[in-house]
């Protein structure tokens, strides 16, 4: 009997369930920890619907819970997007921001902040609009007669990123003091002051997109072998690329409009998932998604706790993960980067 690795439905279900258990643990942990000391028993009773006195209920249900849920949702979307983009672009350094959707969203948000729109609806709406514009631009500039070539589209992303970043820098440099704080805070990625309403609005779309993307799992496996090879094995390469690109960009645009730019999660989590469970996307996608939710919840908890009573934008915490991660990657897999 040969010991071989392959992905079966049973494996997918089992591992997903285990990861969901870990996610539940992370959520509980994050709800428990914070500036205000809340005993674990009080936390449990609050979550079970019992009344535990004003401040505890207030903090757990109205401050921490929406925040934790949003962190989970954002981590979920970005990591899933990262896994898919890494396959589509055949580039282990890809992540959902690489094609510029994030800088378009950022520009939209900056404009919304400058024009004085509300944080709950106006600014996210502007941000999402910015993301949509960028998606259109990428499609217009990055696809040709032959369809979406990964090198072309990567370059398009670089150009768009560069341009929008320049515009953002312009606005930031000419803005007044109070607006400046708000803009920078948004750009660093922040989950404070989140609302159920916002998360509830985008969660169904994100989950739907995730399900559809899961359906492309096997195709993505084949795409990592190259466009031609995938084509020869029956994959409709162009259709797969466009659909996956649109779905990931949509998800990314939605979550970025609420959370700002939280980097590295979409890059790191798929790698970790691959190291642990292998590159088959039918397992990689759920593991990345749930793992991303866990990671971001943990990072956000840390962001809230480390400089209490102040708090760090969570994007700062995830940024600090970047360098050590790449260090590890280099040490363990350096040789593999050079393989063709």
């Amino acid at each position: 009997m040969i010991l071989h690795r392959r992905v079966t439905p049973g494996k997918v279900v089992f591992i997903s369930m285990v990861m969901t258990g870990i996610l539940a643990g992370a959520i509980l942990f994050s709800l428990w920890l914070g500036t205000a000391d809340i005993p674990f028993s009080a936390l449990c009773r609050t979550l079970l619907g019992e009344s535990t006195g004003g401040t505890t209920e207030l903090i757990v249900l109205k401050v921490r819970l929406p925040r934790v849920l949003l962190a989970g949702l954002v981590g979920f979307a970005l990591s899933l997007g990262g896994a898919v983009f890494q396959a589509l672009l055949r580039n282990p350094l890809a992540e959902p921001f690489i094609l510029g959707v994030s800088s378009g969203a950022a520009l939209g948000a900056i404009i919304g902040i400058m024009l004085g729109f509300s944080f709950q609806f106006g600014i996210p709406a502007f941000s999402f609009a910015g993301a949509l514009v960028t998606i259109l631009l990428v499609l217009l500039l990055g696809t040709r007669r032959m369809g979406m070539e990964s090198s072309t589209i990567l370059l398009t992303g670089v150009i768009i990123n560069a341009f929008f970043t320049a515009v953002i820098m312009f606005f930031v440099s000419t803005s007044t003091d109070s607006r400046l704080h708000t803009m920078l805070f948004w750009l660093y990625g922040d989950l404070s002051q989140s609302h159920f309403g916002q998360s509830a609005l985008i969660a169904p779309v994100v989950i739907l997109a995730a399900v559809v993307l899961y359906g492309f799992g096997r195709d993505l496996n084949l795409m990592t072998l190259g466009d031609e090879a995938a084509c020869h094995m029956g994959v409709d390469v162009e259709r797969t690329k466009i659909h996956c690109f649109l779905l990931v960009s949509l998800m990314t645009g939605l979550v970025v409009s609420l959370s700002g730019l939280i980097g590295f999660v979409g890059l790191i989590v798929p790698h970790l998932a691959r190291m642990a469970f292998g590159p088959d996307h039918r397992l990689l996608i759920p593991v990345s998604a749930i793992g991303g939710a866990v990671l971001l919840i943990v990072c956000d908890t840390f962001a809230r706790w480390v400089v209490s009573p102040s708090e760090l934008p969570v994007g700062v915490v995830t940024a600090f993960l970047g360098a050590p991660f790449f260090m590890i990657l280099l040490r363990t897999r350096g040789s593999q980067w050079n393989r063709s």
Binding site: I2, N221, L225, G226, A229, H232, M233, G234, P279
Partner: peptide, 24 residues
Amino acid sequence: FVAQEHAFRFSFSVLEVVLMGRSP
């Protein structure tokens, strides 16, 4: 179709690679 050069960006196992042939 078996092409001339192959770039395997991610480390699939041999069995997984062969199983991909069943996709169609």
